Simulated scan of single mutants.
Amino acid sequence: MQTPRLAPGDTAPDFTLPDAEGTTVSLHDQRGRKVIVYFYPAAMTPGCTKQACDFRDSLDSLGAAGYTVLGISPDKPEKLAKFRDRDGVTFPLLSDPDRTTLGAYGAFGEKTMYGKTVTGVIRSTFVIDEDGVVEQARYNVKATGHVAKLRRDLGLD
């Protein structure tokens, strides 16, 4: 089953999710800031680690341009804390174990993996403006090179 996908101009679905410490983070608390929300399948895996480290390494320039980064996966907060500590991730990693937020963003459903159709997290990134409106919605992004492309598209490189 495919969840509906978001498009530029849509209102970003609000969410309140726990971070690696169990502290809740809400999208509505980010109003007035530009936010990059990205969804990834699983902490501590090679592709997700590469993607998180690319965001970590770009955080200063993204922050200077006014962007906050939030990463969301179905992992429990305890696993997110290990991932954060192991790889020095310096932005919030949020836990969505029931996949409600993943579904609201169209980031959960059928995808092709190693030639087979499976149901799971669709690696996706959303750029949300200060008013909570989706500026960019990207699905099936690659773990490697995605952050560099996003930076170029945002005019940061």
Rank of each mutant, 00 (worst) to 15 (best):
R99Q: 14
Q136I: 13
F108I: 14
V25S: 03
I36Y: 10
T100A: 15
E130R: 14
T24V: 14
D54A: 13
G109T: 11
P41C: 12
T100M: 01
A65G: 12
K82P: 00
G63A: 11
L94F: 06
R86K: 15
V69E: 10
A42Y: 02
V134S: 00
P8M: 10
D96K: 12
Y139H: 12
L80G: 05
G9L: 05
D19H: 04
T23N: 14
A137G: 13
D85E: 15
R84C: 11
R152K: 15
T125R: 06
D98H: 14
E21L: 12
D98S: 13
V133Y: 04
G22L: 05
V25W: 04
L102P: 02
V141T: 04
L154N: 05
T3E: 14
Y139R: 12
L80F: 05
Q136K: 15
M113R: 01
D157H: 05
A107F: 11
C48N: 06
G103H: 04
K34T: 02
D29N: 14
R86F: 05
P74Y: 08
P92E: 09
L156Q: 11
V127Q: 03
D75A: 01
D10T: 09
G9R: 03
G120M: 08
G71Y: 06
T144A: 15
V35C: 03
C53Y: 08
D98R: 12
Q30M: 15
Y40H: 14
F15M: 02
